[in-house]
């Protein structure tokens, strides 16, 4: 199966509706919301967390939570 997020790829957040409430609120605190364009900077091995980058802020996010973000290609 093709990975949902490719490292080095820029994604646009389409919806955060499925994301865990606490995670969603933390993302909002960082300024990330629907429509934000986020860079998938890195991915840790063995289905580990993703590193996302948004306007100079780097965020580590567990894979299972990251996959709940609905994205589209910008």
């Amino acid at each position: 199966m093709k990975e949902k997020f490719q490292v080095g790829q820029k994604i646009r957040i389409a919806s955060l509706a499925e994301v865990n409430e606490l995670v969603r609120r933390r993302l909002l605190d960082f300024g990330i919301t629907e429509g934000s364009i986020v860079l998938v900077e890195n991915k840790l091995p063995f289905s580990g967390p993703y590193i996302l980058e948004f306007k100079g802020t780097k965020i580590g996010l567990r894979r299972i939570e990251a996959l709940q973000i609905e994205v589209e290609m910008p």
């Binding site: 865990n20 606490l22 965020i59 580590g60």
Partner: peptide, 11 residues
């Protein structure tokens, strides 16, 4: 209860 992980990686 849920488990979640989100963390800022400061410069």
């Amino acid at each position: 209860e849920q488990s979640l992980f989100i963390i800022e990686l400061p410069p």
